[in-house]
Amino acid sequence: MKNIGNLKEFACTPDRFQGGHRLCPGCAHGMIVREVVNATDDDLVVSTATGCLEVCSAIYPYTSWDVSWLHIGFENAAAGISGAEAMYKALSRKNKLYNEDRNVKFVAFGGDGGTYDIGFQSLSGATERGHDFLYVCLDNEGYMNTGGQRSSSTPIGAHTTTSPRGRVSYGEKHRKKDLTMIMAAHGAPYVATAVPGSKHWKDLAAKAAKALSTVGPTFINALSPCTTEWKFKPEDTVEIGDLAVETCMFPLYEIEDGHKLTINYRPKNKVPVEEYLSKQGRFSHLFKPENKWLIEEIQKEVDRYWEYLQRREEAGV
């Protein structure tokens, strides 16, 4: 397992995810992916679900990957990587590995569309089968690759192009699916949440390193603030991610072996959700008088969930 010491040391890691990709300026995907693939010195085979990361990092004739990489479809990043992992096991057993001297780790990336929704079956199946891989969800709370449609990860109240705000609508009507807990319920040995950026960089990198060194299926749900569809300025990506943590809209925690929950970061003073919501255009309509009740509801829900996490951690079961 790669020791994630200080950032000065981590920054010596030669980048395995190259620039020159076509993600939006300020896209959190680039930050998260770099941290994950740099969090191990082992060789990597990566699969990526259709989505922003996929289309932007492998537009023929260019690839942004210094590691082996595969894209098949929207719904099958986990199935694809499970096949590659199975081949590694098979060749290893038959003494036919290509590089005997190298360890190979397997990583799949998917957006929330490819993970929460269309790819969920494939992820659930690969996890249940116990393949040795890390799945990272780049959770930007909607189908941003196709212009910002809702997903089951879109939070209540958010405007998207298929859950639009309107004269009689406050936007998305349903609560964000709690995928992290669902993945933990698979009994996966390691499941965690993370955000990009400079404040919680070590949380993410250490989680990736831990997941990659854990035998069996592991899962990281990384919030990926989307400058284009959440509607904030590109330079604010890191701040928005940090605010998601400070408001407890997206708490940082990990669950080991399906049950042992640890909260990795506790805000000193929990910031009201308005702070987070008001900085994003997708929530601007919530500040109209007729929608204010929803902000209160969101706050209640966030408080309830934060309480739940803390009690579960205390229970230590």
Binding site: L7, G20, L23, C27, H29, G30, M31, R34, G197, S198
Partner: peptide, 9 residues
């Protein structure tokens, strides 16, 4: 911080 936060390496 800039290195770790840069989306474009």
């Amino acid at each position: 911080f800039c290195w770790v936060s840069c989306p474009d390496s």
